[in-house]
Design a protein around this nucleic acid. Structure first.
Length: 334
RNA sequence: GGACGGGUGGGUGAGUGGCUAAAACCAGCAGACUGUAAAUCUGCCGCUCCUUGCGGGCUACGGAGGUUCGAAUCCUCCCCCGUCCA
């Protein structure tokens, strides 16, 4: 029951591609703990929508409390997609996300539901909306060799290799940025072309949707306070027991989700290397830094309607609803 | 009352006469980032001025004096803090 795709008076006039069949797609962006889930559920209930998580950590099953997955209660009866879709050992990526999200969106289109994305991972949203270059997926074998090479030599070695394969990318990527160098080399070797060239070839944006991006922008100090409080709430909800259970369940220690914020700190505490108080402090700390990076990323996201507050603020919910239904003042920031 | 140890920039903490606005780390701020992105990397981080330069001025290492061409660094007194002895 999607409301007719009214003309949203935003400044995205540039999207001349406002085809007749383009449907609204709401994307709520904002730092962790800014209340994206609450806002998403509120909008979904008012507008006949369903929530689609756009978060690199919430796709993992079993890792619930620390990834701030909304509880059943918090979901308020609204269907949520792309939560718990893979096992902890699965190497999830931006490309993987795009494929799955496209499928979910298609399904919702069939059922005439308004998709509402809760975006914690900016890269995933960009990958979905703007597309990813036509580059090959990661190759574990190749990476293993590159990693070994880097370990045997040095980061400088990786950078030299990259400079030979793709001087342009070598200029752009810091000589100490191991993951990015590895990916660049990987693409060069797998495609036989420089990564820069692959990127220049363009990407395929998502067609048939008219994104309405809503940004939550609570004051920094208030956000940091919430983060602090939320860490304690998560612990009260049994986060430590969750981690203990995950460790005991035999999931390999090197599985990706064990490196997520909080999970590594709590593991350290379980192993006895740090006190719970110290771990708690460290978790709040890295969450703050994470929030900061998200803010930096989202700041340059184009065409976001920024709302100055938390997603559980009635005034914010109201403003967001108006934005989606098209009765809002045009306050889009480019 | 006595004996030591110590007081350094938002925090921890190096520095024992010039190369020191003062290491390093943390916090903070800003930025980059197309397949690990809750990752990874980069810059700034006393105040101020401009011609934005490895530029100028000012302030700064508990306080006040002093020695010295020059002091966070040496001396004197004072104030705090910690440990120990009475």
């Amino acid at each position: 029951m999607i409301t007719a795709p009214h003309e949203i008076p935003d400044s995205s006039k540039s999207s001349v591609t406002a085809e007749r069949d383009s449907l609204p797609l709401v994307a709520i962006v904002g730092p962790t703990a800014s209340g994206k889930s609450t806002l998403a559920v509120a909008l979904a209930r008012k507008l006949g929508g369903e929530v689609v998580a756009c978060d690199s950590t919430q796709v993992y099953s079993g890792f619930d409390i620390g990834t701030a997955k909304p509880t059943l209660e918090e979901r308020g009866g609204v269907p949520h997609h792309l939560l718990d879709v893979v096992e902890p050992t699965f190497p999830f990526t931006a490309g993987e996300y795009r494929a799955r999200a496209v499928a979910v969106l298609e399904d919702m289109r069939q059922r005439s539901k308004l998709p509402i994305l809760t975006v914690g991972t900016g890269l995933y949203l960009r990958g979905l909306l703007e597309g990813l270059s036509d580059a090959p997926a990661r190759s574990e074998e190749l990476r293993a060799r590159l990693e070994a090479g880097a370990d045997a030599h040095s980061l400088q070695y990786l950078h030299r290799v990259l400079r030979r394969l793709d001087p342009e990318a070598a200029l752009r990527i810091g000589s100490r940025d191991r993951p990015k160098m590895i990916r660049a080399i990987e693409v060069c070797l797998l495609t036989g072309r420089p990564l820069s060239e692959v990127h220049r070839a363009g990407r395929t944006p998502l067609e048939g949707y008219r994104p309405i991006k809503i940004g939550l922008q609570p004051p920094r100090a208030a956000l940091y306070e919430r983060i602090e409080r939320r860490v304690h709430t998560m612990l009260d909800r049994g986060w430590l027991a969750e981690v203990t259970g995950l460790v005991r369940s035999g999931i390999p220690k090197n599985s990706k989700p064990f490196d997520f914020i909080g999970y590594s700190e709590l593991q350290a505490h379980i192993e006895g290397t740090v006190t719970l108080a110290a771990a708690t402090k460290a978790i709040a700390q890295s969450t703050r830094r994470y929030a900061k990076r998200q803010v930096t990323w989202f700041r340059k996201e184009p065409l976001v309607h920024w709302l100055p507050g938390f997603g559980d603020d009635p005034a914010v919910i109201d403003a967001a609803e108006k934005l989606v239904t098209g009765q809002a003042r045009s306050s889009a920031a480019a």
